[in-house]
Simulated assay, not measured.
Amino acid sequence: MERQIRELDQAIAKAFETGASSLAYALQADKKEIERARQKTQMQQQLRKQTDRIAEENWQQLQRFTASFEGWQHTMQKLERNLSDSFESQTGKAIVEKLVQERRRLCQEYGSDLDQVIRSCRLH
């Protein structure tokens, strides 16, 4: 495109020198169209780069959230085992049971949300 613009500039200058002003104006219009096309292409490239950068940053953040979620599940399971070993009474068993139920509920609820987000990211 740059070469085309330089060639048009030379042709416009020649047209003005030879007195062919109507040709010069037509060439200037052509030059403006090429410059607009070049600008549009540059903007599309910049948009693509920025979109890719944002997508990569968000994917990395999603990976961190996934790791954190999995870490939270392991921590909760460890706490459940420790509580189970610590309490031998009915109250202790009830506490552990409630904790297990709550963990499962949260894992199902937030795990499915997380899976949906990951699937939607892979679509794009």
Score class of each variant (00 low, 15 high):
Ala37Met: 03
Glu56Asp: 09
Arg48Glu: 14
Phe87Thr: 01
Glu70Gln: 10
Ala67Met: 09
Lys40Asp: 12
Glu33Ser: 07
Ser89Gly: 13
Leu83Glu: 03
Ser21Lys: 15
Arg103Leu: 10
Arg64Trp: 02
Glu70His: 10
Gln60Arg: 06
Arg64Gln: 11
Asp113Phe: 15
Thr41Asp: 13
Met43Thr: 05
Glu70Asn: 12
Lys98Gly: 04
Arg36Asn: 10
Leu79Glu: 09
Glu97Cys: 01
His124Gly: 09
Ala11Val: 03
Glu88Ser: 12
Met1Pro: 06
Arg104Gly: 00
Leu27Gly: 02
Glu109Met: 07
Ala11Gly: 00
Lys31Trp: 08
Ala13Ser: 11
Glu97Trp: 05
Leu123Tyr: 11
Phe69Trp: 06
Leu83Cys: 06
Asp9Ile: 08
Asn58Asp: 12
Leu114Asn: 01
Lys93Tyr: 10
Gln42Val: 07
Arg103Asp: 06
Leu79Phe: 15
Asp9Leu: 14
Ala11His: 04
Asp113Ala: 09
Phe69Cys: 00
Lys40Pro: 00
Gln101Ala: 13
Leu123Arg: 12
Ala11Met: 11
Ala55Arg: 14
Arg6Asn: 06
Ala37Asp: 09
Lys31Met: 08
Leu114Thr: 01
Gln63Tyr: 03
Ser22Ile: 13
Gly19Trp: 05
Leu83Pro: 00
Glu17Arg: 11
Gln46Lys: 14
Gln73Phe: 03
Glu17Thr: 13
Ala55Glu: 15
Ser86Phe: 13
Ile118Trp: 04
